[in-house]
Design a protein around this nucleic acid. Structure first.
Lengths: 139, 139, 139, 139
DNA sequence: GTGGTCTAGACCACA
DNA sequence: GTGGTCTAGACCACC
């Protein structure tokens, strides 16, 4: 269910958060559903329990989950709420990247074509966390 | 000329590289033009010369500048060449971010509107290095 | 294990890289095996940790190792992959040097005799499972 | 007559020496022939006279030229003498590179074929001083 | 514990 | 003057 790229440069605890967020966004996890325990998940992913704990803690302060001591951790919000929350940052990032696209000489028509193509395609596929792409690009 | 955000998460030497890339893209620096010396720039930015040197070496292996010990450092390519080089990565990044936008529930019309807005605005060197924005990912 | 010539003109961090490449070529280090920590090796070689770190970073951008902050550094490729990668440059260098040999008046028979002599001598620590050596696949 | 690659990593004064050695080896300059004056050559190559002077000084201590104060600098040896002098180092280098070739998995037959090919081709062409070949090879 | 970054100050070769 | 290398010591994020 949860995929961690050990070789990725993004911290494992962030990858875990992203994974759970994705599970919520895709409807695989709903509000008040329980997450696996820290030790369980740590064993399953062969990852240091401290790292899992840090991820859970991070998600809790981010308001994505809530923890009931002695009971476990649970999803704190619905897919829609999560979407609402991500929108401003997603838009901001989109603006930056679009600006860079322009800067780099990509025509507006080409940019719009890309947008159309992506919105037309079926929502599927996890990608990102591109560990060690030879060309260490930025933005 | 060059702006560094000491508090940013992105290393100073990468910020320096981004700054010089921007100067090339905007035409402020042309091929074979000389960069300020390591010590000069270090003093100007109030940054340790070692860090500047690291940035220069980084840019050299990236093929953006070439350094002649005893002579100085010089731009290695034209704005167009730099654009060509950045395009694939910029497009890839754009696709990822657009995908995320869709995922987060932003309508295609809204996305296209953003694109139009950005392409309509006058091209001027805006800087980034968004210190602590939630989306930390770079490569 | 690792030998550094402090008085050599070639930088220490390159010597370290050469040493590790040799260890991979001879089969002493295999893919995904862990390298000594920066501080450990620094103490062992009586060299500043910064220099070791620089060597490791160099090897990482060269694709020879990968580093996971907080976990350690690991060999990124097999002996065969490293051989494949070195072949073109080794051949190019060989051509240059042979050309110079001719230029300097060494007879072809003498050159061929040297080749025979070197290929006849024991190669020292070749590993087994190196399968087909002439393959032209992958990097 | 003399070609300097300003972008090369090998010092200019060494390039100058190599150039003059080549001129001797090819017979373009004979023993006791005069070299251009420091200032003349400096102007011709658009290079700092100090650098030319350093090159001449280097060649003098190497016994390749001799200087008569107030008269100029002159070739000190014949092509054959120069060849004799270069042979040991050329052979040594050849051995190293051949060893590396073997190490990297190139078959002996292939090495011999390269030797034959180079000895068969007409002696021509200056190469080397491979300024900024992306792959900064060693050995 | 690990690697990544930065500072401070030094020495070298090259032009 | 330039860039290249190294040392010493520090702080950080990550596991």
């Amino acid at each position: 269910m949860i995929l961690i790229d050990q070789r990725s440069r993004v911290p494992i605890y962030e990858q875990i958060q992203e994974n759970f967020e994705m599970l919520v966004l895709t409807g695989a996890l709903k509000r008040d559903e329980q997450l696996p325990g820290v030790r369980t998940l740590a064993k399953e992913l062969a990852i240091n329990p401290n790292t899992i704990a840090k991820a859970y803690q991070l998600m809790e302060v981010a308001g994505i989950i809530y923890s009931l001591p002695g009971r476990g951790s649970f999803i704190a919000l619905t897919a829609d709420e999560l979407r609402q929350r991500h929108r401003p940052q997603a838009l901001q990032k989109f603006r930056e990247v679009t600006f860079h696209l322009k800067e780099v000489g990509v025509a507006e028509t080409e940019a719009r074509a890309e947008v159309s193509r992506i919105y037309a395609s079926p929502s599927e596929g996890r990608d990102k966390n591109d560990s060690r792409s030879e060309s260490d690009e930025k933005i």
